[in-house]
């Protein structure tokens, strides 16, 4: 069975910074990403002859890969932990690094007292499983925009959010109470694509891993 000719390998990229970093990585591997740089409003773009890039929001990258309409995806570990799903997580791309953290107003001791805490977050599943491991009942409030506002306005005792440098927290008088886990960009694959297009995908992964290794050295 030869399906290589069927269609190019389709990779869903998380729009924004991960997209730029992934494109830079593909260019280091020698792929022509001209179409991505001059994309205009197009969302499906050819990269060389063998790859097609699809630009999507983080959570949609997972949905497209899970359902097999994209073979591969580049998405942050934050979205993977929050959404879960059925796919293979093949490699840590090393960029898009940051951490999940529990943060709140500077100087307050979060764990003192017996009251039930309210946590504001864009990542309710991450927050829930973090406190489940601590056997703590918490109220979780889902916030879409700047989560830092919630403790400042008195809506929540703390937030669970992504922290990169901590500057936003500092400027708003907040601090990290506890780091939850590190985050970085991951290469994910549809479970059937990996099997049916093994050679192509493994070739790409080994190219990526060699490049990442040589970069570290």
């Amino acid at each position: 069975m030869n399906n290589n000719a069927a269609r190019p390998l389709r990779i869903a990229l998380t729009k924004g910074r991960l997209e730029k970093d992934t494109v830079a990585l593909l260019e280091r591997l020698g792929y022509d990403c001209g179409a991505v740089h001059e994309k205009g409003r197009k969302l499906i773009l050819p990269v060389g002859d063998s790859i097609e890039v699809v630009l999507a929001k983080a959570a949609d990258v997972i949905t497209y890969v899970e359902n097999g309409v994209c073979d591969l995806g580049v998405v942050g570990k934050d979205t993977i932990i929050e959404m879960g799903g059925k796919f293979f997580e093949l490699s840590d791309l090393g960029f898009g690094k940051c951490r999940f953290a529990l943060a709140g107003k500077k100087g307050e001791s979060f764990y003192d007292g017996t009251h039930v805490r309210t946590i504001a977050t864009k990542y309710p599943n991450v927050a829930r499983s973090f406190f489940e491991k601590k056997n703590m009942d918490v109220d979780i409030v889902k916030i879409e925009g700047s989560v830092e506002l919630a403790p400042l306005l008195g809506l929540s005792h703390a937030i669970v959010d992504i922290v990169e440098t901590g500057t936003t927290l500092k400027e708003n008088g907040l601090e990290v109470y506890e780091y939850i886990c590190p985050i970085s960009a991951r290469l994910i694959a549809n479970m059937v694509s990996l099997k049916l297009r093994k050679e192509e995908i493994e070739e790409l992964i080994s190219q990526i891993e060699n490049t990442l290794k040589s970069k570290v050295e």
């Binding site: 069927a6 097999g68 479970m191």
Partner: peptide
């Protein structure tokens, strides 16, 4: 078992 065109076993 997998078939072409379906994203899950």
């Amino acid at each position: 078992g997998y078939i072409e065109g379906c994203g899950d076993a």
